[in-house]
Design a protein around this nucleic acid. Structure first.
Lengths: 346, 346
DNA sequence: ATTAGCACTCAACCAAAACGAGTGCTAACA
DNA sequence: TGTTAGCACTCGTTTTGGTTGAGTGCTAAT
């Protein structure tokens, strides 16, 4: 399955390239014209028959040209793409100015990417699971409400208003704050175990319910935002006829709205062991989500150290411009790696 | 234009009712059958010819039945709908349990509504413009970062990390907190004028840059989230053939993605003087946004007192079930009015 | 004022025909 | 033995033209 012979490779390459551009089944004549091997259409036909037998291309019907199969695409991205690595896409890095809110950066990134590629895009906020607590603060907003603020590594800030029955005096407040900070500081969420919690509650005395609530906030910080996903350009799907019959389009766009499917996808991506580049390509049925069986998805995982990972994904038709997309992602990935990390230190 | 005569009204009503159900042009025979005025199709035809001349109905082509025009729909919602006021829709109010985050409530509401009506829905978070400051707190996260938290009336919490060059000692921190709280507490954003700012900066002495940043956070609180809009069920559009040709669908769904159009819509809604009920109906071209010229939009404005207003909107085909939708909204509106307000006090 | 009747219109549907891009195969060629 | 020209064949697409039927407007009778 590996060795095709140079000529067959060239032909397969030409077929796919041409199909990527036109989206129409490509016949033997065209190939004999555009490919610079000077062969007649008849010869090409023979080779194409072979390629079809081997499963790399498919004939939609008897009297049509050939179309790449999933296997064909796979071979293309694995062997045939020459990564002209340096013509990096022009994601303006001006955008990543110390926009203090990560949320904003991500929203921008995903928008720019969608605009640049003309495909549908998604990005997941870095998971804070395994992230460390940096700072906890309780403050009395008024007699009946306490504001609890939790800052995690990477400056993820969460807050919650806790209702209380009686006002707490200033001193208790200070004591609680001290207690929380000294006990929890530097811990990851998974390290906050039952023993610690009981100990905390003990020391808090009569205010243990407040402690419970604060811990709750911490827990929410994780579970809640773990699935924060931003999307853009979902409607680009309409640009590709093979995806835009209303059945298909509806399901796809719905998936973008619900984000459930995207979440599954991202979890899959991150569990799978990233290659050297951290870029992965899912063609058709390779996607872990049924909805996307007619698409291809290219994902990249970016990191912020400390195991904080996020995923960028581009969803398009199978005949998407893999080269451009992969270059784009590779480039963006490194920018994100740097920019966000830099931001979180500053 | 006002007086149609009872018979014409009845006929118009029958036409629209029937069209709402079927979505097909309705002919004279059907009307003569279903309407309980016992008239022959021929008579109906005469009346229909009149109605067409008056602009209430339209003939898609010569040998087809009639379809309501925008004017027809307008007349329908204004005069013909009998608001069976009490059969309120069953939005389960269990959902509005003191979910402390308004964001969550809104996301839920919009989802339930979309699901219930099978139309596309949107909801805007209550504008905090004109909202009062309740509490400000600065805390040192570490040597180089200060966390600024601002709580507004209605428990809207905003935060921002402010980078500083040198650590501030505890005492200064306390002083600044005191200063900010005493000066700003209870003010609306518009009340924080230049004079006040200068006074603040003076008193802060060398730390005036921090004050500036905090004020910035306050400003952001308003400008930023003023346009927070949640949507759901955008793909319901595909359920209505007259909207789902890919040109149209693409634009519409895109509008939902971008939210820009929705924002304009909501601004328009809120500026327009709400009737008695606060419910408004935009039919076709009445909509302030060109994209929605083939839709109808029903909006309701809910309030939290203090001029905090938000808007709920339902976007569907012109032949949407106005009755159901308006009932739904009316009901929901009051629930929101109560629930969120109740929440903000608790 | 209402209605039955009738001629007329026109989108929608369907089947047959024409088209043409592309193939597989065979036979000739280098 | 690999390549190519030629040709019959296939089959989706497009075109054409005829039929159908829902619905109308008008007229004449009630």
């Amino acid at each position: 399955m590996e060795e095709l012979g140079e000529r067959k490779e060239k032909i397969l390459n030409a077929i796919i390239k041409h199909y990527l551009e036109t989206g129409e089944p490509v016949g033997s004549r065209v190939i004999s014209k555009i490919a610079d091997l000077s062969l007649s259409s008849a010869t090409i036909r023979n080779e194409m028959a072979d390629l079809e037998e081997l499963g790399y291309i498919i004939q939609p019907h008897t009297s049509a040209g050939r179309v790449p199969s999933d296997k064909g695409y796979r071979f293309y991205v694995d062997h045939l793409i020459e990564t002209k690595n340096q013509e990096v896409a022009e994601i303006k890095d001006l955008m990543i100015e110390k926009t203090e809110k990560m949320e904003k950066v991500l929203k921008q990134v995903v928008k720019i990417l969608a605009n640049d590629t003309q495909y549908a895009t998604m990005i997941s906020a870095p998971s804070v699971r395994g992230n460390r607590l940096k700072f906890v603060q309780l403050s009395a907003v008024d007699e009946n409400q306490i504001l609890s603020v939790v800052v995690m590594d990477g400056n993820v800030v969460k807050n919650k208003i806790i209702p209380v029955d009686d006002a707490l005096d200033n001193e208790t407040m200070l004591k609680l704050n001290m207690l929380l900070n000294t006990t929890l500081n530097g811990l990851t969420v998974s390290e906050i175990n039952l023993g610690l919690i009981t100990k905390l509650k003990e020391q808090a005395g009569i205010h243990e319910d407040i402690i419970a609530q604060v811990l709750n906030t911490v827990a929410e910080t994780i579970s809640d935002d773990d699935l924060e996903i931003y999307t853009s350009g979902a409607t680009n799907i309409f640009k590709y006829p093979e995806l835009s019959d209303s059945q298909n389009a509806s399901e796809l766009i719905s998936a973008f709205e619900e984000k459930q499917a995207l979440k599954e996808f991202i979890e899959e991506t991150q569990s799978e062991d990233g290659e050297d580049t951290g870029i992965q390509v899912y063609i058709g049925n390779e996607a872990p989500v049924q909805t996307m069986k007619d698409c291809s998805v290219v994902t990249a995982t970016y990191e912020l150290g400390d195991g904080m990972k996020g995923t960028i994904g581009i969803i398009g038709p199978k005949r998407m411009d893999y080269e451009k997309v992969m270059d784009n992602l590779k480039n963006l990935k490194s920018q994100l790696d740097n920019a966000l990390r830099g931001d979180s230190d500053k």
